[in-house]
Amino acid sequence: MFQLSDYAYDLPPQKIAQTPCKNRSNSRLLHLDRNSGIVAHHQFDDILTLLKDDDLLVINNTKVVPARLFGQKETGGKIEVLIIDYAAGMKHLEKTGFFQCDCLVKASKSPKKGARLYLADTVEARVEQVKGNVFEIRFLNGDKFSDFLKKSGKIPLPPYIKREDPSSGQTDPDDYQTIYASNEGAVAAPTAGLHFTNSLMADLKKKGIEFAPITLHVGYGTFVPVRVQDIREHQIHSEYFSLSKDSADKINRAKHQNRRIVAVGTTSVRTLEFLSDETGFVTAQTGQCDLFIYPGYTFKCVDAMITNFHLPESTLLMLISAFYSREHILDAYQEAINKDYRFFSYGDAMLIE
């Protein structure tokens, strides 16, 4: 249960979705009932009948920023920069007038401290610190940084989504964003939310289902592999979160009324559990979430979750294995493979209740 190999499974590469469904809510939905153990197959918009009339859906309203930048080094060599802590960079901008944060850099030869980087629109950046494979970079265009990023940055798709022909990814800026994304700061989408459409959300609200937005700015750490054999030794990444008083009140009211808290995505699960007291109630606040959930964890707040299919040996697979059981989850994954489900960010979804 605590060995990394316990979370391995074989996934044929062709099962990894490279594009989303044309209609988001036409994706498939694997339904796991923890009480009966029954596995059922649906279309995502069947969630309308599967959810209870008084459920509270907690959604992550983070918005993916175009955090991928291209340019060259002083030597002329090509370079690619990926901003991995946008929230910290914005805080630094407010304090100092310069956007500065941790980044990943792809180049034939890594730049050293003090190196100048020349990006699009003649924007310069400087490497302030080198911390292993992470580079702290200051962008020298000051308060014009946000405009520059929107104009020149690219959406940072996960590495398993291939875009060899640039023209093939023209719709990614819209596709790789939930319809309710409003709070800029993520470098990866909370992908369980990608299945919702405006009409489906309107129908859910008509049914009596309530929505409570929270923010967790998904960081690149969500893609960082676990490198230790005993998963309990893994150090999970930290991500900025914010829970408003209005959403906290909705969650606590639902708890008082014995209504279900349904988390949309593992990011919502982690945030809710990080904020919950022992009875499942939450307090409005902002901060950094570094909760690592794996089997043996006792859930305090979340009663059901909607989630996508996750990478082998990933912390996200460990989280959902803690919510049901590792054996049941891996059996369900094998069933999804056999039934030709589409995996990962642009793939199909699960409802575990």
Rank of each mutant, 00 (worst) to 15 (best):
K52Y: 07
K300D: 08
G37N: 04
F99G: 13
Y240C: 06
L82C: 13
L119H: 00
S242W: 00
L57A: 04
E273V: 06
P13S: 07
L200V: 06
H41C: 04
A125F: 02
T222E: 07
V187T: 01
D165T: 06
K109M: 00
F145N: 14
N198S: 13
V64P: 02
K78T: 10
L117F: 02
F145A: 01
R232L: 14
A212H: 09
V187H: 04
F223M: 11
P156S: 13
T267S: 15
R253L: 13
G114F: 02
T191F: 03
R116T: 06
D45W: 09
Y333K: 14
P295Q: 05
D85I: 05
V218K: 03
Y176T: 09
S238G: 08
D303A: 08
S247K: 06
E278F: 08
D55F: 05
T122Q: 10
A107N: 02
I231A: 12
V226R: 00
R260F: 02
H237A: 05
L48P: 03
R227C: 04
H217I: 04
Y297K: 09
A115M: 12
K91Y: 05
N61G: 05
M90C: 13
A304H: 02
Q288G: 08
N252P: 05
S108H: 14
S242G: 04
D54Y: 01
I251H: 13
E239Q: 00
L11H: 09
K73S: 08
Y160T: 08
L351K: 02
N183A: 09
M318R: 01
A17T: 03
A8G: 10
I47L: 15
S5D: 12
L4Q: 11
P213Y: 01
R270N: 13
D10L: 08
P166I: 03
K154P: 00
L243M: 14
K63L: 13
K22D: 09
L243G: 06
P158F: 01
F299K: 01
K106H: 03
E327G: 07
S314T: 02
